[in-house]
Design a protein around this nucleic acid. Structure first.
Length: 1127
RNA sequence: GGGCCUGUAGCUCAGGUGGUUAGAGCGCUACACUGAUAAUGUAGAGGUCCGUGGUUCGAGUCCACGCAGGCCCA
């Protein structure tokens, strides 16, 4: 019975499936958590995905990255609870439902009730859960899928309400407004997502005005500002300049009224406003009506010089006059001179930049008061001017005799075409045009023209949108900005720059968090208000809601509770039907907004455990997280909301270590998309390559925080090179271990110190590998860890250890040396299975089982084992250096042998190599591995050349890093001098430890350690060198060497014959050979026993002739040979 | 427009604190090995280190300005 299973070929996908099955049947994941009960916790937070779409290959990346550190920490002895989660709210779900039902947002409440709509959302959002779970399992992402948190769950929402109330109680929740895209035609705000719908941005021709703002206290001097939205001009309350930009003062005439005037604009915009042909014209000779308007630059200044200048309000309407510092010049960092005048007109209500700039400068905006005393803009929500402006414009039309396609009443001044008036009417004039004409007539317009630009439109009504102030609820994150910045510095970000740069800068420029969303499917804002806004209540729990409902029913405001007590649902429409009663006995209605879904996910550390209503102990043991990982696109999303809530409410970080991973692109570096057809199907890839190679490829190919150019060829390469090599190594072990009936038994194993140097070396290398993997993983660097494991497996273990030790496994019967080889290889494979288990969880477990099937005290799975750390006593750096020399020397000899001038194949033994040694130490180091080198490159002896021999030629070069610090600019002279040195100077510095060099008449002392001495040549020999190492090869072929070469050739040919005959490794043979020339005959005579041993021949006969012989091609000649299988 | 990331061989990527001749794997070419064999080894060819300036005795590495691609935000 075979102790170690052997495999002809390996079906990696099948390993994945069968190991997965085994895990399920034996509950391995649960055990891996349960086994660590009572141990220190390592906390991981799952950033919830949304299951309303199918998972892609990038999710394999993200989920693998999450998985590996949890597995690693489990091995290290921590208990790692990982609760899965689902993100279920938000616009994408709503849009998908609307698409499927063929409805729009307007239809909600009309064609379909909110109740039905939300039920549909609830169904849709988990549609692909099964597919997600399937992928999660198949890639080996261990996370609790049976009891995940779900953001639409009433308990989950209850925690959110609790958190919101805590914010409310700290005065961090307030109602304000912000400038948002708004569709007057649809009467709703638009999300940036809606704005990014194809076709939203359209090229339109709008009337643009360069308006003239008259400076106070100066005669006819104007600042020019350009706008594509003239209707915002009545709301102007400041002008912005760029402080570093250059501006000019120009004397000229108004092109419409021909009045003499002085204007100010950016210097680089001169040519856009003035015809160069007019430059030579004299101002004095100008006559009103002349087409070419002369101009003269009369002053120049920086933007900073303009700051604080005051000007007259453009539309002097009493009701909208403002106190100082309105109508002054302020600084705006976004001002450019790409178009316009380099001066930007600011209207607080109609631009986000405008709003921000004016708030920063404490400049009031143009607003009027409604009946409640609230500020409202002069444009109403239907998109038309309030009568207060309408009256003014209507009066001005009359005054200037302006006629249009219709009679404009005070309520007709829509700022965009929301009326469906016929724009093709010859007399058609919109509000922008009317404003332009008024300004032209009043000498307040410098230039009016049609301007084509891209402007966003409402995707539902096709009408242009407005940027408009909308009411919103905010979290006052700015109040905690400094603390957030401070605590962020304690977070270990991978990569670091995302933490300091992208996230750090974001925190530095923090604005208050706009929580409000005007939608249907999401967490409702738990705030109820009286109609006049004077009283309000924030509800923080279901119990509180119930008791407030009770009060309200008692007060007679509701007949019964709209909330189903049996099955509590806190969504709309039920909460909207709840009317509460204020302390003064007034009815309170819920603020209709839903909250930003990012609050949902940012609250998961608390809500996943229904804290503080339940599970306080679990929460406390698992907060904050030790580790999280998500895409870098989440920086201002999940990473921020986690951080913000934690800092504001708990004064702590939410996570201590975080990896922000990059994107998965296609192999050409393009974004993957289903539409373009370059998306990689994860299920198909898994089926073809299995989970381990896929995971390994993704981790090892590039750092996770860089974008990954995903290529199936890369996966195949990992599979072949790494897994294939490892599998070959295992198979090699299994084949011979089974033949020798070797079974690993630690208690009987030979102490490492008694094994060969090769064994000691690979064990030492293995310890170094463990150190590397540990430190990489402790530093959240999986790429380094996987690369180190690969290098060890392929280069050290397989291509050096196994290759050199091969014969020990198959020659002769079981003995101590053989046992040591088995044990060494076995120990390496066992260690590898644990080291790689985090990254390749399936294959490693399978390997572990194959290695331990016949062992008595095996664990059920590698994932249930304890981490076997480094045994420092087994590290032998000296030996590692020796072996490194052996590898390099062998490589040099190989390169010499295949040099065209020499051309002697490895099978032909050679007498000796010569190695110059500069110190006794390096000589001893090489001597340690002499036998290995000799057998590897097939030479009989190594001879050393040291100072005592006169054939050694040394060379010297400067030790630049050392000398540079000492000499600085004198370096190159000294370097030049050193490069001319010969034997004499070298021996002088070696003898005295120093030497003097003349530079420019100055004598400089150079020390021995400031130069590097190496041997580079042996006169009369072919040498090969690699850095300080030099090897010479003796190519003399003696008779005996030739005979041995022939013998080896024969062995080689007979081994081929054996294989062709289909013989098993242990089969014995008889050999008959026909005699050839003297050299060949002598070879068989002298090396007969060697040939017999190697080929497992019982006899070797040399005969005059051999019947039924095969002609063996020996390159230079042929031999008649017959091989018979022994009985 | 702003912030951040990336740019090194045909491809995928390494290249502490600046140091003489910039590395690995894949691919390619040649050779070798043939009891790990649908494997493997060795060697070779292949580079304006995105560009331009600067700092320095010396720059792939540090600084500035650009270019190209990407992400996020306006």
């Amino acid at each position: 019975m075979k102790k170690y299973q052997e495999f002809k070929q390996v079906d990696y996908p099948n390993i994945g499936e069968s190991v997965l099955q085994y895990w399920k049947e034996n509950n391995i994941f649960n055990k891996s958590v349960a086994n660590r009960e009572g141990a220190e916790t390592f906390t991981f937070f799952e950033g919830p995905p949304s299951a309303n779409g199918t998972p892609g290959i990038h999710h394999v990346m993200a989920r693998t990255l999450k998985d590996i550190f949890c597995r690693y920490k489990t091995l290290k002895g921590f208990q790692v609870k990982r609760k899965g989660g689902w993100d279920t709210h938000g616009l994408p779900v709503e849009l998908q439902v609307e698409k499927e039902l063929g409805i729009t947002k307007e239809d909600i409440g009309k064609k379909i009730t909110v109740e039905e709509y939300n039920r549909k959302c609830r169904e849709t959002v988990m549609r692909f859960k099964d597919e997600w779970d399937d992928l999660t399992e198949k890639i080996g992402y261990w996370v609790d899928l049976d009891d995940p948190y779900i953001t639409f769950d009433a308990k989950y929402i209850e925690t959110l309400w609790h958190l919101l109330k805590r914010l409310y109680d700290k005065d961090l929740l307030y109602k304000g407004y912000t400038i948002q895209p708004y569709s007057p035609a649809a009467g709703t705000g638009l999300s940036s997502h809606e704005l990014n719908q194809p076709g939203c941005y359209r090229d339109v021709k709008d009337t643009s005005i360069t308006a003239q703002f008259k400076l106070k206290g100066e005669e006819s001097t104007y600042i020019l500002a350009w706008t594509t939205t003239p209707w915002t001009l009545p709301s102007n309350s400041a002008l912005a300049i760029g402080e570093k930009l250059d501006y000019v003062k120009v004397k000229t005439f108004n092109p419409y009224t021909y009045d003499a005037q002085t204007v100010i604009l950016a210097k680089s915009r001169l040519s856009a406003y003035f015809n160069p042909k007019a430059k030579e014209l004299s101002l004095a000779e100008y006559k009103a009506g002349d087409k070419l308007i002369p101009y003269e630059v009369v002053g120049e200044m920086k933007g900073a010089d303009l700051l604080g200048l005051e000007y007259e309000q453009l539309f002097p309407i009493e009701a909208i006059s403002l106190p100082h510092p309105a109508f002054t010049v302020v600084s705006g960092d976004y001002v450019t001179t790409e178009d316009g005048t380099g001066i930007v007109h600011l209207a607080k209500a109609f631009g986000a930049d405008d709003f921000r700039t004016l708030v920063q400068n404490n400049v009031p905006g143009v607003f009027v008061q409604d009946e409640k005393g609230n500020d409202i803009p002069v444009v109403d929500k239907q998109g038309k001017f309030l009568p207060i402006i309408g009256e003014y414009l209507a009066a001005k039309m009359k005054e200037h005799g302006i006629t249009a396609h219709k009679d404009y009443g005070v309520n007709d001044f829509y700022v965009k075409n929301y009326t469906d008036d016929n724009e093709d009417d010859k007399e058609y004039k919109n509000t922008d045009v009317i404003i332009s004409i008024i300004l032209k007539n009043e000498s307040k317009a410098f230039k009016v023209e049609k301007y084509e630009h891209s402007y966003p439109h409402c995707w539902r009504t096709d009408k242009p949108i407005l940027y408009y102030p909308l009411e919103s609820w905010f979290i006052k994150t700015t109040a905690y900005k400094d603390r957030m910045v401070e605590l962020n510095k304690t977070i270990n970000w991978k990569p670091e720059a995302t933490g300091t740069g992208r996230f750090g800068n974001w925190l530095e420029n923090l604005v208050d968090w706009n929580l409000s969303r005007s939608r249907f499917w999401g967490t409702p804002l738990p705030i109820w208000r009286t109609k006049d806004g004077s009283e309000e209540i924030c509800i923080g729990s279901i119990d509180e809601l119930k008791s407030e409902i009770k009060k309200s029913i008692e007060a007679g405001l509701m007949e019964s509770s709209p909330i189903n007590e049996e099955e509590i649902d806190l969504h709309r429409p039920y909460v909207d039907d709840v009317i509460l009663v204020s302390p003064k006995g007034v009815a309170m209605y819920r603020e209709p907004d839903l909250i930003d879904v990012w609050f949902d996910s940012g609250a998961m550390p608390y809500a996943q455990w229904h804290y503080p209503f339940e599970n306080e102990d679990i929460f406390k043991a698992n907060y904050p997280a030790d580790y999280i990982a998500e895409g870098v696109d989440q920086t201002r999303g999940w990473f921020f909301t986690l951080h913000a809530i934690a800092v504001m409410l708990f004064d702590t970080v939410s996570f201590k270590n975080v990896i922000a991973n990059g994107l998965v692109l296609d192999k050409n570096g393009n974004k993957m998309s289903k539409r373009l057809g370059n998306a990689v199907d994860p299920f198909k890839t898994l089926k073809e390559y299995g989970p381990d190679a896929l995971r390994w490829y993704m981790l090892s190919n590039a750092n996770p925080w860089d974008n990954l150019k995903f290529s199936l060829d890369g996966v195949a390469e990992v599979q072949r090179r790494f897994f294939g090599t490892l599998q070959n190594t295992y198979n090699f072990f299994a084949l011979y271990a089974n033949l020798d009936e070797f079974v690993y038994d630690k208690s009987k194993s030979i102490p490492v110190a008694q094994r060969t140097e090769l064994d000691q070396w690979i064990i030492s290398k293995l310890q170094s590998l463990i150190t590397d993997v540990e430190s990489s993983m402790d530093n959240y660097d999986a790429t380094k860890a996987t690369r180190a494991i690969m290098n060890f497996t392929v280069d050290q273990l397989s291509n050096w250890y196994v290759r050199l030790a091969r014969k020990r496994f198959w020659r002769g019967d079981m003995n101590a040396d053989k046992q040591a080889a088995y044990e060494t290889l076995y120990e390496c494979l066992m260690s590898l299975s644990q080291l790689m288990s985090s990254f390749a969880p399936f294959y490693s477990d399978w390997l572990y089982k194959n290695l331990t099937d016949s062992s008595e005290n095996q664990m059920e799975s590698i994932h249930l084992t304890d981490w076997v750390g480094v045994d420092a006593s087994l590290i032998n750096k000296d030996l590692e250096e020796s072996m490194d020399l052996a590898q390099r020397i062998s490589s040099l000899v190989h390169s010499l042998r295949k040099n065209p001038k020499i051309g002697i194949k490895v099978r032909q033994p050679l007498q000796r190599i010569l190695i110059p040694v500069l110190s006794e130490k390096s000589k001893v180091q090489i001597q340690h591995v002499e036998d290995l080198i000799k057998s590897e490159v097939n030479i009989k002896a190594i001879e050393y050349i040291d100072d005592a021999s006169d054939v050694l030629v040394k060379s010297v070069k400067p030790n630049l890093p050392v000398l540079g610090k000492k000499l600085g600019p004198k370096m190159r002279f000294v370097v030049a001098a050193i490069n001319t040195w010969g034997k004499e100077q070298i021996s002088e510095i070696e003898r005295n430890g120093k030497i003097y060099v003349d530079v420019d008449g100055e004598s400089l002392e150079l020390l021995l350690e400031e130069v590097l001495i190496s041997s580079q040549d042996i006169p009369g020999w072919s040498v090969a060198t690699d850095q300080e190492l030099t090897v010479a090869l003796d190519v003399t072929l003696t008779e005996e060497l030739k005979q041995e070469g022939i013998a080896r050739d024969l062995v080689n040919r007979i081994q081929n014959l054996r294989k062709d005959m289909g013989l098993e490794v242990q089969d014995k043979i008889h050999i008959q050979i026909a005699k050839h020339d003297d050299l060949v005959n002598a070879s068989f005579e002298n090396f007969g026993s060697y040939i017999k041993t190697e080929t497992q021949a019982l006899s070797l006969e040399t005969l005059e002739t051999v019947s039924d012989a095969i002609a063996l091609d020996m390159d230079e000649f042929e031999l008649s040979v017959k091989v018979l299988k022994a009985n």
